[in-house]
Write a protein that binds this DNA or RNA. Sequence first.
DNA 1: TATTTATCTGAGTATCTGTTCATATGGTAA
DNA 2: TTACCATATGAACAGATACTCAGATAAATA
Lengths: 121, 121
Amino acid sequence: MKPTNETKEFCDYRCIHEKRVTAATHDALPGQENQHMAQLFKAMGDANRLKILWALEHEEMCVCDIAAFLKVSESAVSHQLRLLRQLQLVSNRREGPVLYYRLNDHHVNELMQIALEHTRE
Amino acid sequence: MKPTNETKEFCDYRCIHEKRVTAATHDALPGQENQHMAQLFKAMGDANRLKILWALEHEEMCVCDIAAFLKVSESAVSHQLRLLRQLQLVSNRREGPVLYYRLNDHHVNELMQIALEHTRE
DNA sequence: TATTTATCTGAGTATCTGTTCATATGGTAA
DNA sequence: TTACCATATGAACAGATACTCAGATAAATA
């Protein structure tokens, strides 16, 4: 699949990579930013995590609230919250033994709103 | 961890689920929309697919262009494009045996821009 | 027709992910 | 202290995912 000038002149339907690939490479995101963005989307790309983020957008909730809401175990929720915490999408506040979680990133809501529009078209 | 009114009155640090859970349930997305949104984010939550979408935002490209750009096999690209096609995020146009792919959803770019802002804060 | 190019597809496989389960930690109250 | 509650954590397991490989398909040309 190596395109060459000969093949290009010989037969005009052959793929001509160079220009497009170099253009794409030129406009490409730095690998680090691309990776970071993918990580964000991946975090939002799970039905339960997305429900958590949607709920926390409206009101802070503790782990067992979320577990009851999602109808899954508190352990499962805790694992998901750890992931969201590591990405700094949520933060928490302690009140006695109870941890109240809330959204910690204003982009998350914007992303959810656009995705919602998307589903409604 | 069933919360009851007795426990609530008895000990004020216990979780009080009912109000929050019912509030969250009230504001919750329909399961179908939630699932659809998660699917969109999941599709964008892979480094290679995100690179593809980013590249196609700038210029239409054929499969072997994309493969050369990403430095992965054409087969792998074809599998990823099928996924993106099924979600109607990209579409293609045939020119002889060559298929040129392009973005087919104006939300994708908005989402990428916000995610990019996110990474830069 | 046979051949070549570009792409697609299904099967197989290694890796990643999300859950469960058991256990640990931190805070509160008797 | 001891008991209890809310949450966190690590190991283990099942299912999902993304790649490779071999073969199929569609279009152009000889």
